[in-house]
Write a protein that binds this DNA or RNA. Structure first.
Lengths: 202, 202
DNA sequence: AATTTCAGTGTACACGTGTACGCTAGTTTT
DNA sequence: AAAACTAGCGTACACGTGTACACTGAAATT
């Protein structure tokens, strides 16, 4: 059972996913995509779409998973760079900004669906962001010997700040990106400083 | 020239605005509203819509302005409460959370259009948020004698954190709201503490 | 070799959309 | 009193939408 059939199916499924991702842009959100458009872009008859997803929603949730995966790759890359030494905060911000530059549309998807009209989408995005936050929380707890609760509060704030900066970066002109990055770094330092301070008093 | 005519026109214009606002909800975004729906809700024939707005976009931008107005009322209310004494941060967060509860759909509009597909909408929302940030910046500079730059960085971070908490509040269950508020307060304290610290070194 | 399964097709339908156009009736201006 | 203006209406059109349905041909199973 080589599965030459299942193999082909998987391939067209990917085509659909890639077609959808490919149509996303600053002026095109996932919810504005139609089943027909996506099918056409994938080189499929509209009705064939249903062989792979029962719904555009199902495709959308798959895309969010995909985005979560990309996010985790980002974390891995940041960790590797940090191991080689340097300011943790600065490396993290720079790495994240690179991610935005290379994966703008995927990040846009997360940002938009996070405040979108589907509760399922919002939950899915929040789940991905929570992974992100938890990983950072663990790191802070270990590296800075922070109280569990304080570490979480700091991680949550840091992720919020970084995501917001990413959102700004999507619309910013190139010349303003450096300033934006510097400000973000400074904000993360404020938070880290405050957290350390409060940690001392616990 | 009593303007009985212009008066009536203004009234129907308001009906359109209110109809649009009234249709917004957690599962209905402005961009998903159709001209026909809004006109119908306002008790108008579809084509009469054009007597007031050339576009749904024009209506939308009007709504964003409206939202900005509400935001400024919020600031005024917070200032009044602060004058009566108490923790500035706590009062601000509580006031903001009340705002979310009473104006959920207006806040949703801002959140969504901020990452939406129209550059004009994004710019309009960012403008309103900037007002908000600048006011806070001025306050911090005066009340805490902060360096201009540091005050701005702090204000920007604080607004980001508070807006993000507002976004979370929209989806949170009632029992979790208190914890969310407490965490937000703590995060703002981290930031304030960090800013004060760095201000000392300038 | 015969049968079943199923990814992909093409046709067809009802529906909601934005908006062009011509009209009416009440206000406003002359 | 006559003329011009205009908010709102109804009709009409072309277009894109999701999806039901019957179909084909190749792969998989028997």
């Amino acid at each position: 059972m080589s599965g030459i059939r299942a193999q082909q199916k998987e391939k067209t499924r990917r085509q659909l996913i890639d077609a959808a991702l490919g149509q996303l842009s600053s002026e095109r959100s996932f919810s504005s995509l139609s089943l027909r458009e996506v099918a056409k872009e994938a080189g499929l008859a509209p009705t064939s779409f249903y062989r792979h997803f029962s719904d555009m929603d199902e495709l959308g949730l798959t895309l969010v998973d995909e985005a979560g995966l990309t996010l985790r790759q980002l974390m891995r890359q940041a960790r590797q760079r940090i191991e080689k030494g340097g300011s943790v905060i600065q490396i993290s911000v720079v790495t994240f900004m690179e991610f935005i530059e290379n994966n703008g549309n995927i990040f846009r998807l997360l940002l938009r669906e996070r405040s979108g009209t589907s509760a399922a989408f919002r939950a899915a995005v929040n789940r991905e962001v929570r992974y992100f936050t938890m990983e950072l929380c663990d790191y802070l707890q270990q590296a800075n010997k922070l109280d569990t609760k304080i570490a979480y509060i700091q991680a949550d704030a840091a992720v919020t700040i970084v995501f917001s900066a990413g959102s700004d970066a999507l619309d910013a002109e190139t010349k303003d990106l450096e300033e934006l990055a510097q400000r973000t770094i400074q904000q993360l330092r404020f938070i880290a400083r405050g957290a350390a301070e409060f940690n001392g008093r616990r």
